[in-house]
Design a protein around this nucleic acid. Structure first.
Lengths: 207, 207
DNA sequence: ACCTGAACACCGTTCAAGT
DNA sequence: ACCTGAACACCGTTCAAGT
């Protein structure tokens, strides 16, 4: 067939198709992606020279798109932080299977780094020390990612409770089940983390 | 050759060999694992019917072995929490490549669940509400896992700073580099989280 | 530049066959 | 029970060849 008069493929189509497959099947393969696009595998590689890893980065951009870090420009830092956290979990929870794909692949797109601008600016205005801001962002994101992985994981198999003792059993029985479990843990974590940061900010001022 | 007079393989050897390969190569394959053990692939499957996923669980047990949750039996909860957190990160940092393997695979071994007994008991004695204890543990572990992933990730590519604005740039310049970066973020996160939990505990008592 | 078609080395898993 | 040897379907990636 050779070169078509209008290009059949572009990076946007490839990323969107990959995300679609991940949402549907929990994963994607390069041949499966090509099939889904009605094209040969080698055609995909022409638009995505780094192969599968690059496709995963395209998926990352699509999934990360809904993260709202602009709240730092219009709200006090602690309220903005909660909005940021929620939007982060929401963005990843909308594509549970994608989380496992994105968690282990290092971020390649430097443009995604720029998304932390409003966060850094907000934390700076809040009074965090210059040499602590990256640590705050990193710790927050570590928690967000871990929570997203937790939320995307299949429910804990409560079977085989033989070795579980009283305290843990009572805690397990009292805990909510289903999606509410992950949500409670996330809200508690965000709440505790922000409260801890608030305290740290106050102590810094006292110095 | 048929059945040997003494069994060549057992689950311990398989797990240890897999972890060794992961530490050396960053990953393992079933054929590579068999080769490393001087055996045919099908022999491995005889000891590990669920295949690769089961081998990963063997690796998880080996890596998780050094997590010290017994501190909750001998220290105040907040001090024990810090010991637990540190040992968790240390255990995973000793096998950085294994983290990516373990993060995405759901935990299958119910015996690993029993390891939370001392944690649950300690948090219960500390005064946390029954229906909050699992949330505290889950939030903590989400953060630990996210931090372990962060620590095992290759260093951020600081190149292409075109889109990075002043605040973020100043924060990046002031932040430590190398392993110290992940460590600072982890310590700050643990500190803030524990401080937030302490506050929550105090509020509960005031009710 | 953009796509096809065919190929390569390799993967996870299975299964009949041996002792 | 425990291991061998061979096979299956499939994967990620590459490359010459077409227009």
């Amino acid at each position: 067939m050779g070169r078509p008069r209008v290009a059949l493929l572009d990076r946007d189509k490839i990323g969107a198709a990959a995300l679609q497959l991940v949402d549907r099947d929990g994963d994607f393969t390069m041949p499966g992606l090509a099939r889904h696009l009605g094209v040969q595998v080698s055609s995909v590689y022409h638009h995505v020279p780094a192969g599968r890893a690059e496709v995963i980065e395209l998926v990352r951009v699509l999934v990360s798109h809904r993260i709202d870090d602009a709240a730092f420009d219009r709200l006090p830092w602690d309220q903005a932080f909660v909005v940021w956290a929620r939007s982060y979990l929401d963005a990843f929870s909308a594509h549970p299977a994608a989380v496992r794909l994105l968690a282990t692949e290092p971020i390649r797109d430097p443009a995604l780094l720029a998304a932390y601008n409003p966060v850094a600016a907000g934390l700076c205005r809040a009074g965090f020390a210059d040499d602590e801001i990256i640590a705050v962002i990193t710790a927050a994101e570590s928690f967000f990612l871990g929570a997203a992985l937790d939320a995307s994981a299949p429910d804990i198999i409560a079977g085989g409770r033989d070795e579980i003792e009283a305290d843990l059993r009572r805690a397990l029985d009292a805990a909510p089940s289903g999606p509410a479990r992950a949500k409670q843990a996330f809200d508690l974590g965000v709440d505790a983390f922000v409260a801890g940061l608030r305290l740290r900010l106050r102590h810094d001022c006292a110095d």
